[in-house]
Design a protein around this nucleic acid. Structure first.
Length: 423
RNA sequence: GCGGUUGUGGCGAAGUGGUCUAACGCACCGGAUUGUGGAUCCGGCAUUCGUGGGUUCGAAACCCAUCAACCGCCCCA
């Protein structure tokens, strides 16, 4: 009989995994508090149309990666594949553009879903932490968002980080560049791989970072987006770089950095980490114009990023950082016999009530095995209680670190443990 | 969607057609120490080798199918 397992591309997070997850959640929360971003939680599923229009019909996400289903009311819904579209939807729906506090700065943490073949750093359900700053055209907010992501990683101890930035320019610049690329590649597109031939009309920028054709001379000589930026786009990109310089953040400009989602304009960026298999992108983000308008809001732009907790863990492991955490216990009760068990139970709950973490044996183990169990649980103290102790109204408390053992009056045990634990 | 590798107890792993009623290590349980952990020694712990079918006198091993995991491609976080 085959057992039922988790769905493909999903995992269980077990108690031994939770320490690093809590750390990441707390770090995200703390950094966002310092940067003054407020938490938002949107539903795990949305109208399918939200992603089709928001992310873009031509993107891989929409074309082949969405978990789409029809509910009993015959509505087409989709498990969210990314966080920006839902946040912008909520921004518009809740009329946050009318909030006197502008720009609106939001962050979210939660599961995202994409139907892909799983591999290292890629799952069908994964967890994203992301921020969105909506309503400002100030290039300084781009730099703020980037620095927030870097700060998050730094606080978790990651050092091997590389920031790559680029500008796609405004709509006008993008259009001109796209035309230039198509002109550039069209005559010889037959020499390129099948993927690139498909990319020509769909997204010619992608040809630039094709792994198959990277040696092709036309790639080296391809027109750079940076040469097609109009004056205002150039000025904007310059200002973003200047702001990063002012913050002491180092970066690399990569004119071939193309992000997979249709909504990006101007600033795009990625943060790469230490090698963990084929994937090194930890975080991706950029500025989007037109998205708010698309969903019925005013003509404002936003900038944000998304990063995956799963990849943080992989990067930490690749850098040799500790990601496991062991639980500890203040006191383990080791009763001997039925009478002792009753007394131990009473004291066990008294400890817990007093804020001392405590547990006891429920497997009817021998004393020796109870000590072994206490040791495994990382218990600081073991409280032994047999007929002898009961008769004298004491417990024999053993300090598992020092090995010293003393008798403590039954009604003194809470005070005794508290004092000892405070040292 | 395509390609590669793998699938043996709780975990790691040997075995590649004939005493395999499956080695070894870790973990776990018990004992040496009849009320004391982290050391040592002794003992216990898979009628079964992902699942289904086939070949054979005989399969965990060979063949086919299927499922899954891992890795890679595309693409992404």
């Amino acid at each position: 009989m085959a057992i039922i397992t988790v769905p493909r591309g999903t995992v269980d997070l077990l108690p031994s995994d939770m320490s690093i997850w809590k750390r990441m959640e707390k770090t995200a929360e703390e950094v966002c508090r310092l940067y003054n971003y407020g938490e938002i939680r949107t539903p795990m599923f949305e109208a399918t149309d939200l992603f089709q229009r928001g992310v873009g019909e031509t993107t891989d996400i929409v074309q082949k990666e969405m978990y789409t289903f029809t509910d009993r009311g015959n509505r087409s819904l989709t498990l969210r594949p990314e966080g920006t579209a839902p946040v912008v939807r909520s921004y518009v729906e809740n009329k946050m553009y009318g909030d006197p506090n502008q720009p609106v700065k939001l962050y979210y943490c939660g599961p995202m879903f994409r139907y892909e073949r799983p591999q290292a750093g890629r799952q069908r359900q994964f967890t994203q932490f992301g921020v969105e700053a909506i309503g400002s055209d100030d290039p300084h907010i781009d730099a703020e968002v980037i620095s927030l992501a870097l700060e998050f990683y730094k606080r978790l101890g990651l050092k091997q980080l590389k920031l790559v930035i680029n500008s796609l320019g405004d709509l006008d610049s993008r259009k001109k560049h796209r035309e230039a690329l198509i002109r550039h590649f069209s005559p010889a597109i037959g020499e390129f791989c099948e993927d690139c031939q498909n990319r020509l009309e769909r997204n010619p920028l992608r040809i630039l970072d094709c792994k198959v054709d990277r040696e092709h001379p036309l790639i080296q000589s391809a027109p750079s987006i940076l040469d097609y930026l109009n004056e205002s786009s150039k000025a904007f990109f310059h200002a973003v770089k200047e702001a990063l310089d002012d913050m002491g953040i180092t970066y690399e400009v990569d004119p071939t950095l193309v992000r997979g989602l249709d909504y990006y304009h101007h600033t795009t960026f990625e943060i790469m980490g230490a090698d963990f298999g084929a994937i090194t992108t930890l975080c991706g983000g950029g500025r989007y114009n037109g998205l708010v308008e698309e969903f019925g809001g005013p003509r404002v732009s936003g900038i944000g990023f998304g990063l995956s907790f799963e990849r943080v863990i992989l990067a930490m492991k690749a850098e040799g950082l500790e990601v496991s955490g062991s639980r500890t216990l203040d006191c383990f009760f080791a009763p001997i016999g039925e009478k002792a068990r009753a007394v131990a139970t009473k004291l066990l709950y008294a400890c817990r009530k007093a804020g001392i973490s405590a547990d006891m044996d429920y497997m009817d183990r021998k004393v020796k095995a109870q000590f072994k169990q206490a040791d495994r649980l990382g218990a600081r103290f073991v409280a032994v209680l047999g007929d002898d102790e009961i008769a004298r109204h004491v417990l024999s408390i053993k300090d598992m670190e020092t090995g010293e053992q003393v008798d403590v009056e039954e009604d003194q045990i809470i005070d005794y443990l508290k004092t000892k634990l405070e040292d």
